[in-house]
Design a protein around this nucleic acid. Sequence first.
RNA 1: GGGCGCGUAGCUCAGUUGGUUAGAGUGUCUCGGUGACAUCGAGAAGGUCAGAGGUUCAAAUCCUCUCGCGCCCACCA
Length: 760
Amino acid sequence: MNTNNTHINNQISNKINAKFLKPYEPSATEGVIYKKWLDSGFFNPDVCVEKGVYAKDAEKFSIVLPPPNVTGTLHLGHAAMLAIEDIMVRFERMRGKKTLWLPGTDHASIATQSKVEKELMKTEKKSRHDLGQKEFLKRVEKFAQESHDTIVHQVERMGASVDWSREAFTLDAPRNKAVRTAFKRMYDDGLIYRDYRVINWDPKGQTVISDDEVVYQETKALVYIFKYSADFPIAIATTRPETKVGDTAVAVSPNDTRYQKYIGKEYVVEFCDVPLHIKIISDDEVDPEYGTGAVGVTPAHSMIDFEMAKRHNLPVIPVINEYARMTVDTPQLTGKKTKEAREIIVEWLKKENLLEKEEEVDQNISTAERTGCVIEPLPKLQWFIDVDKKFILPKSHITGIKDNESVSLKQLMQTVVQNNQVKILPDRFEKTYFQWIDNLRPWCISRQIWYGHQIPVWYKNGGGNKSPKSPTWVLDTQVGNNIQKEEEKEVFCGVEPPSANWQNEGWEQDPDTLDTWFSSGLWTFSTLGWPEKTDDLKTYHPTDILETAYDIIFFWVARMILMSTYLLGEIPFKYSYFHGLVRDSKGRKMSKSLGNIVDPLEMINKYGADATRMSLIIGAPPGNDTNLSEDKIRAYKKFANKIWNASRFVLSNIQDLNINIKPELVEKDKKILQELNALAQDITIDLENFRLYLAAEKLYHYFWHIFADKIIEESKERLVENNTTNQTDRLSCQWMLCEALKINLKLLHPFMHGWRVLPT
RNA sequence: GGGCGCGUAGCUCAGUUGGUUAGAGUGUCUCGGUGACAUCGAGAAGGUCAGAGGUUCAAAUCCUCUCGCGCCCACCA
């Protein structure tokens, strides 16, 4: 900033009599400095323009803070994120750009709700249903508020120069309006639709989750090869015998000579006292080489089988419910847990001599990200976003896509990265990104969670011509009936309810809430006031950099690109910079169960925020995981102390220097300053190219091993006061030291916020 | 099955587009000094840069293969 030279000069001249504690005490300095900055208002670009810090028409630079979940406290990953972004922001601010770093928090629906549920069960032995929705939500909001306050405090302690006046929350009123607006628009374009299909059900969380929230875990499983009955011609294999009571077909490969003769035939068998009607079908999906070359088709409890059933018009018979218990109507199975049912059926198979083989295989079992519970695929009516459906994009700022062009969301997501409008750093993650899009299926966005944005859709009995897609191929099963009922209802989707008096007119709002990533996807522009046409939106969007951990590239980064290109016709950010995961000193993931979580606040208290920041920057190129040890943080506390003491030395040796009159410099000093300016150039280039880790390391090395070890050491002789023989040299040396220190501190400022101004 | 990354000093890791004796922190050893700094200074030991082959005047860096480790994605019952 243009004020800084005067500022430092004043500090220097005022310093003489000031207390200059030794050793350096970060806790005594950092808080004071941050407070000064907060009070100055310089974190707010409007204030900066007002005070003339930079011109009204200065180039802008904007970053939105990835909003931390209000599920508790920040961890070292957040600290790394704050450090990196603060460096970027302070660097650009110093270069005179109109800089905005917009903070906020995320309601993280399912994560927050399950956290509170867990706590409730632990302390009061109650479920959320025991409390009721209203009371439960009160508890969640209270918890969220407390977490928010903790997080804000931690962000401040890190020294993050965010503009608090613009703080946002993914579940506050303006963001809710944005969510409803986005939903409505997608609904009208036919991109959001309601469909009946097999989804990922989390029996513990009692909600559906998206494909991305499924975590695969390698386990050993038993595969059973058996026949439904003694006179059934084909043996099939399964790892889940309990689902077989829901089978409606056996599928074989169309070219499989072994089974040709059976295709099209139908069998009625009694399987573990359950009557089954099995049709033999042929489908390309079946691999004749694998297993017995024949697949038992369970349309209700397998996504592949469900699709197969669709193609062959097979009945869908659900036999497992939301609590992972059997619903099939036979005394020995009804109400049993799936695991128990499996044992019963295997026993029955053995008894009937139908089990041909049993072998152990490696299997990827799907579990829910948040609860860890094994996923139960169930057929359900849910809301989805269609990523393949074409729609008209009215206004496009996207290279290669014209106004009013017909495109799909997938195309939009692919185009902006392909044409480099959004650059992904490090670029190897581009491959990951494209691979994800290629495999992308409809995004399930509805959740049976209480905490979140309620779906802006209302239903009314009667009317009913706006019904969702009819699953005509579903037979008259229990679930089929439910669907029929839903279908008879009139559907209204709107930013606002169907009428002011909707409750009394028989309308009911959809009780489901939205996937938390739906609202996160809007973050770059919902925070700037969208759907309102605000100045902020005009000035700061698209943002310049989105900086986050690589593990949310799909959840968040891709969804932001989706939402922004669709709703605004423009990219959400120009660069997507990914940092790695912060692991413990042995390279393990930090987790509660391992007890190796390092609390950033504790490190800040012990070593200072600047030391903590430096330890997270140096040796951490984009995208690489870093192992962090306390030793490393301690090392940078020593560095802070070094800066402090070097500054003390310089200041106490230039007391008789008139800093307003530049003396004639000797060659040696000219050269030193030239070299330092070259370093400044070099570091600027590093920062422009996101090589923060290199810039920080170079600064560290220069300050300690060149400036302190060489330049200051060599200056000691030259500074001797009674060295009257060469006053010119002494004066030159003084000036050089003062100048070099100032430049060093300026260069250090983005990294170590405590060194913006000299301590008083 | 597909993709990505890693293997550099005892330990944890840097090394930007290939270019002088390969660096940092930490640890070890010797010495110094308490008027910037013991959260210190000077110096030392310690690396066939996983292995093999290739490209090049020149390779830790580029290419191929091998070994070891980690991660992500995928509807093989």
